[in-house]
């Protein structure tokens, strides 16, 4: 009775190869084109609107029907998936480093990808703010209030979540400004993470923890996520607190050349990203609570987006340096979190 084993393996292999033949994507003829946009967590609503508007534009312009496939998750995890073969035509992630990794490790797009589109390939920006419970019962006004005794802070893990890295850097910027040194900054950030009861893997998971499960006193969040929570999900249940200093988050977008070329979708993919920079695209961006680059659109939404002091990733020497120093294995975050919680 040894025969069935090879037989089963053979059946498995045949089945596998047969199935893989059915699964393809991309452009099938002139009539339609399909784009896979691999994105990070909080952009679900944004790209739902963008995709619908772009599909209409593209149809009017070329007569071609464009349809979209979306994949959402933590930015780092999504980047890893694309490197491992998830064949995204475009990526719209939380930070440049996650796209750098694709260029570096898998050569899916050129290393200079970020200079191919205006504004560092970031058609919209956001910043980090605080979301607190209605009436702000713990009296949270600025960063120092987050480390007061009894305050619980919700933020996802910077190991897996792009948004969480921005949170970390915003906190660091405050610590450095207040204490005047990197040592003071690290002390403040370590103190802050000792107030975090649970590290979710993505920004959306952290929001759900705070909004739905009711955990924590303050959510450190993307401004867009905080506005969405305040205005749409839990209307009247939350307040937004804008801190004295924060970071300018520039979530970049890029065509994944190798995949788009293989699918024959380069033109549609490129136009799709360009659409984000048009006045129509920028208006959709602003309506979804991202800060538009277009000054005219920004002026129309000035009430939604208050001005505040912001540092940029360049102040940390760019994503490559920041990633290595703070978030890589054995970096500052490991020292803080491993050291503070376990040992």
């Amino acid at each position: 009775m040894r025969a069935p084993f090879p037989a089963v393996m053979a059946a498995l292999m045949i089945g596998t190869i047969g199935l893989s033949a059915c699964s393809g994507g991309g452009s099938n003829g002139k009539g339609s084109v399909e784009l896979l946009n691999v994105s990070y967590d909080p952009t679900r609503e944004l790209y739902k609107d963008v995709n619908a508007a772009f599909a209409k534009r593209w149809k009017d312009k070329t007569g071609q029907t464009v349809s979209f496939r979306m994949s959402h998750g933590g930015s780092g995890k999504q980047s890893r998936s694309v490197i491992d073969g998830l064949s995204a035509d475009v990526v719209t992630l939380a930070l440049g480093y996650d796209i750098d990794a694709m260029a570096e490790r898998a050569k899916l797009l050129p290393a200079n990808w970020q200079s191919r589109l205006p504004d560092n390939s970031a058609p919209y920006t956001s910043t980090i703010v605080f979301l607190v419970r209605k009436g702000n019962p713990k009296g949270i006004r600025d960063w120092p209030d987050l480390v007061k005794p009894g305050v619980q802070v919700i933020t996802p893990s910077p190991k897996t979540s792009g948004g969480a890295r921005w949170n970390f850097l915003a906190a660091w910027a405050y610590g450095k400004k207040a204490g005047g040194s990197d040592a003071a900054a690290q002390k403040y950030v370590a103190n802050l993470y000792s107030h975090v009861p649970v590290l979710d893997s993505g920004a959306r998971g952290a929001t759900t923890t705070f909004v739905e499960r009711g955990l924590g006193d303050v959510l450190i969040a993307w401004e867009n996520e905080a506005l969405l929570s305040e205005k749409e999900l839990g209307a009247g249940k939350f307040d937004i607190v804008v801190p004295s200093i924060s970071v300018l988050a520039e979530p970049p977008v890029a065509v994944v050349d190798a995949n788009a070329k293989a699918h024959g979708t380069e033109r549609a993919a490129t136009e799709y990203l360009n659409f984000l920079y048009t006045p129509e695209g920028q208006e959709i961006v602003a309506r979804n609570f991202y800060r538009p680059r277009d000054q005219a659109v920004m002026a129309r939404h000035a009430a939604t987006f208050p001005k505040l002091d912001m540092v940029t990733i360049q102040d940390f020497g760019g994503w490559g340096a920041a990633q290595k120093r703070f978030f890589a294995d054995g970096g500052v975050f490991d020292a803080i979190y491993g050291g503070g919680k376990r040992r």
Partner: peptide, 17 residues
């Protein structure tokens, strides 16, 4: 697999396996 256009991971075959 890439060279031969066979997709396993992030497609149905990977899920089945």
């Amino acid at each position: 697999l890439t060279e031969h256009g066979v997709r396993i991971i992030f497609a149905v075959p990977g899920i089945v396996l």
